[in-house]
């Protein structure tokens, strides 16, 4: 009886640990060798799936942000955003680029192709791609700002660090609509903890919208052999909604972005 109780307690502890910290704990059992690039660094190549995160503050999902430290501008953005208001014309409904955050927090798989010089993200969501040089080059100082921004990667030991700058400030952090300004820098880390998992972090350093950086932790799970990325033509069935007026088109916001 005593051993049964002990076993039950152990099992409950395992469940709590997994529910609290997600799959990385379970993945610790994996003993397959981590694939490596020709330069010896871990390869991120593969098909990956992650946790759908509609709201980065959702406490039901491990790795969430406890409290977002808004600036005055950020709080005003958050309080004025109403995703149920069709007049605000959500950019995602118009199939404008989701950018990094709403892609990595989205529900669809991502293929990564990785060599010594580049990490290429091939997202199923809207069939977007994003190229990240990892060959030591710097950000392009005079690049025009954009939805996805300009990303470069570098290694810190066996962790690939991707820094993205020069964002246009039109994207939101998540579907819930948490703000992001044109002053934002996104820092992602990719650590291949074993053959089946990447520990991924998303840090937003955005002095326009938040008084200090904050981080979301997500596990990316490797998809089995034979997995396929499917076509995702976003406008295909949104067009009738937009042309009928049921879905209002996104309009470039005219509010001023915060200044440095």
């Amino acid at each position: 009886m005593k051993s049964q109780v002990k076993s039950l307690v152990t099992n409950v502890m395992v469940i709590i640990l997994i529910l609290s910290f997600g799959l990385p704990f379970a993945a610790a059992q994996n003993t397959e060798e981590i694939p490596r690039l020709s330069n010896g660094k871990p390869s991120m190549t593969g098909y990956w799936d992650s946790v759908r995160r509609v709201d980065v503050t959702n406490t039901r999902l491990s790795g969430y942000v406890e409290e977002l430290p808004y600036t005055e501008w950020g709080l005003a953005q958050w309080e004025s955003y109403d995703r149920t208001d069709p007049e605000q014309g959500d950019y995602a409904g118009s199939c404008m680029p989701f950018g990094i955050s709403r892609t990595v927090f989205g529900p669809w798989p991502i293929a990564l192709k990785h060599d010594n010089d580049h990490l290429v993200m091939l997202a199923e969501q809207n069939s977007w791609f994003h190229m990240i040089p990892t060959d030591g080059r710097a950000h392009v100082a005079d690049f025009p700002s954009s939805w996805w921004g300009d990303s470069v990667g570098h290694w810190e030991d066996d962790t690939l660090v991707v820094v993205t700058k020069n964002l246009n400030g039109y994207t939101k952090v998540d579907t819930a609509g948490h703000p992001m300004s044109s002053l934002a820098t996104i820092i992602q880390t990719f650590t291949r903890v074993d053959a089946q998992n990447i520990a991924h972090t998303f840090t937003l350093d955005d002095p326009g919208a938040y008084t200090e950086p904050w981080t979301v932790y997500n596990n990316w799970a490797h998809q089995p052999e034979g997995f396929r990325i499917m076509e995702y033509s976003c406008m295909e069935n949104n067009l009738t909604g937009l042309t009928s007026g049921s879905l209002l088109p996104w309009i470039r916001p005219d509010e001023t972005q915060p200044s440095e």
């Binding site: 759908r52 995703r83 149920t84 069709p86 605000q88 014309g89 959500d90 409904g93 609509g177 879905l247």
Partner: peptide
């Protein structure tokens, strides 16, 4: 309902 975009803007 959260599958793609803010569907809440079109449907109640």
């Amino acid at each position: 309902l959260f599958a793609h975009h803010s569907i809440a803007a079109e449907f109640d």
